[in-house]
Structures are given as C-alpha cells and as structure tokens.
Amino acid sequence: MPSIPLHIATPPVNAPENPLPSLLQTPSGFAIVELQGTINFPTPEPNPSSSVEVGKVVFPLYNPQLNEPGDTKWMKRVYFYVGQNQRMTGEVKKLAKPFAVIKKREGGYVDMGGMQKGEGTTEELEIVDVVRYKIMFSTRPEPVGGEV
C-alpha cells in the first residue's frame, strides 16, 4: 500500500448555482464556515429531505452592483441567523494558507491506464477543491428579534 495517489479532481460541469458572494466561490463550490460551539437542532424523524435548514447567512455590506470589484469592506461583516432568534456576527477571512479539500476517491477501480498493480481495493484520494477564504464566526450568538 504505502503509496497512495492524490489526484486532482476536475470540477463538476453542472454544479448547482452558488448563492455565496463570487469571491467565496470555488470551482467545485466548497466553502469553509468556522464557528465557536456547535449548532444544535432537532432531528425530525419522518423527514423526506436529506438536510435541515438551520438559518441564513447574510452579507449585509455585500452588493456587487455598488461595490468596486476590489472592494473588500463587505468581508468585515457577516451575520449568521440561527433559528428564529439567535445571531452570530462574523467576517470573511482570507486564509494565509489555503486549504485543499480532500476525500476518498469514489469507485476504487478507476482505470489509470494500467498503472494500478492488480489490487482491486487500492485506496485513492483526491483534492476536490482549493478553498482560499473562510467565513469565521468567532463570537457567541446574541439574541435578536424574530423578524428574519
């Protein structure tokens, strides 16, 4: 085993529309959100969907029509509304060292033009994306009115 190839994945062609500001968009759409503590939410048992909506992320100063292309002031303020009445304040940070997002390659029998040595279950990894910014919420949530 001791050598595992680390491939570089090609971004998907038909990725879903990315609702984040364009600066945060990466070829495969991955983003990093960091926060203190954890988000607790009830897991509704008979749930047909595969996810729970926990809130909304708002970039109050972001307006691509008004902001200059190089303007990064909007990065200073991000709100994360969790549920009806909690809000975290954070910012968008450029990472000093970008992160590669790595996962196990799906379908272990990928034909690499005969480079594989017979073992069918060779573990392979791939870099699915390189993320250069993160949305960082370093403060505790504060109570807000339920208008959101």
């Binding site: 996810s51 729970v52 909506e53 926990v54 909304k56 992160f99 959101v148």
Partner: peptide, 23 residues
Amino acid sequence: QQDAGGVPFSIAHDMRQFRLLEL
C-alpha cells in the same frame, strides 16, 4: 437573494468524510 434575507444555510443529515489540508 441578499434582499430576500440572505443565503439559506442547511446541515446535511449524512455527514461525509472530508479532510482539510493546509497548502
């Protein structure tokens, strides 16, 4: 979407295995 109150944020039920590698 900003006008409509931001980007909806959800959490998947089945978390997947990813690693972050500092470059």
